[in-house]
Write a protein that binds this DNA or RNA. Sequence first.
DNA 1: TATTTATATGTTACCGATTTCACTTTCATA
DNA 2: TATGAAAGTGAAATCGGTAACATATAAATA
Lengths: 326, 326
Amino acid sequence: MNIADISRMAGVSRAAVSRYFNNGYISEEKREAIRRVVEETGYRPSVQAQTLRTKKTRMIGVIVPKVASESIGKVVEGILSVLNKSGYQALLAVTQNDPQKELEYLSAFHGKQVDGVILSGTVFTPEHKRMLKNSSVPVVIAGQYLAGQCAVYHDDYHATYDLTRVFLGKGRRKLGYIGAIPQDKAVGAERYRGFCDAVRDGGHPEFAANCVTADFSVASGHEKAGELLAKCKDLDGVVCATDSMAVGAVQYLREQGIRVPEQILVAGQGDYEMARVMGPPLVTVHYYYEKCGEVAVQMLMDLLGHREGAMKEVKLGYYIVDPMQV
Amino acid sequence: MNIADISRMAGVSRAAVSRYFNNGYISEEKREAIRRVVEETGYRPSVQAQTLRTKKTRMIGVIVPKVASESIGKVVEGILSVLNKSGYQALLAVTQNDPQKELEYLSAFHGKQVDGVILSGTVFTPEHKRMLKNSSVPVVIAGQYLAGQCAVYHDDYHATYDLTRVFLGKGRRKLGYIGAIPQDKAVGAERYRGFCDAVRDGGHPEFAANCVTADFSVASGHEKAGELLAKCKDLDGVVCATDSMAVGAVQYLREQGIRVPEQILVAGQGDYEMARVMGPPLVTVHYYYEKCGEVAVQMLMDLLGHREGAMKEVKLGYYIVDPMQV
DNA sequence: TATTTATATGTTACCGATTTCACTTTCATA
DNA sequence: TATGAAAGTGAAATCGGTAACATATAAATA
């Protein structure tokens, strides 16, 4: 069933059928004739043919490090919800944090395939930036600031700063930090900088050295908490870059017979479900992950529609979750 | 830059360039000439044009209820990992458990767009089945058995049966159950049937009535645990259809001053991270979610390649996670 | 030597839509 | 009544590839 068949059955030209679907000039009788034939046959125009002709795929590429992660899952959820309200579809690519794959997908999407890309990488190399510069389709970065690029991201710095100040405000003085690799600008570098500045402003710049680096797993948080404790014996608070690390840290501390939160208070970030169900719940930061995805799509739609006044950078808010405070 | 430009620059016919990319007969010199031009220009054949001509999109549609869920996230992760090893891409559609949307996407994918579909719905209506019957592209169901359809699913029945027997084996006699809606064949009906048969075989068929229905949230588990307890006062064990429900239930019980697991032992299913970090961890069932996604893709690839001996139904295993047993 | 067979190549129709173009009809305006 | 604008129409070019077909050469076989 193609447009020629329909036009024949309806006794009109192919152009008329095309106009029927694209709101072109068409008389009421022909419109009705076509409508009937379309209804009977269940005909739907071929997307590929339309795409070839119009150069619009109505698909956007979504590149993420993984999908089975609470934070990224929410971002993707946000992306998809707005996306198909706008009649677009998502081509999902998972990179497993492999920069090579990121570039690969970026270039695969780049030339064709999709009308735009939402990129949620972690580490951006110079090659990334070069590729983004001369991308033929608009790209929006989600979850990270990148100079010169459209991006929506969280206020990682102030969130961690505030979180750390909460610790200091509770009289916790001897703080340690479990963070992510510094190459990860948002979760790694910015959050650690927030911690450093907070302890410095609190009068204890030397705490900035009480820092170890974990990956995003609970197991890694567990392991690195051991390293942190070996580094400095008498902590009374540990701030972590993510809830998963924090949960691992709590487990380790309790295994060592340390009472949490009485002896050592632990904070994560992300307000993951797993943090909320700990007993007692973790101190944490709520970031607006779904919103991040939603805004990313809106920015992209602005770029696609060549709408003026398009947003170039959006920094999202956050709030501290302190179970003891409620 | 199209194939005509390249052929002109390389001094060959368009067919030769096409053959260059599709391993057709081509002499070494022409191959080299084309290679050089392609390299210089960075030319890549247009996917849409290829698709229009060949009727192969090398995309498959993935329909899921949501993505920010540990179990579904893992399934999607599994799907994607195998998929792009096979050179396919995934068009992701999220239905938010709306059967209408499922049908909509199914029909959108159906006629065209994708070479195949992986459907991970929860409730299948007669209309679903009708639609699946006369789908023009192969469909694989993930996470649920559906007669006459290619499907990969978990052994929900035996898992819950075994899990319940573990409770009985521990001397827990007065059991309650928090389940999902019976329209959800896998997580709702099958798991509940496993529970019922286990308590019946254990000599306590009357426990089957100690059942309430929750949705998949922690909050719902919390609420429904209250209803369950109001229903029968003196439980010593609660089996749940998912870990999220179980975590909610544990929270409720502890709020009521009930010691968990001493007074009431609680089990979930799914082996979610949040279950493992509870203190002490939940009894739960490990299902192979990633594997489920991987197998679904393999089945689909078999169907696509018209390979004989294609798998039609795959039932996956499971194991019980009993923290007290380790 | 005659005849397959494999390799190599270009021409051209085709996939299924959109859109430009040229043209006709209708209708309001000067 | 002429005139221009707006509405309506179909033919045909176009998007960028693939594949069927015709054809030619070289190598292998009978």
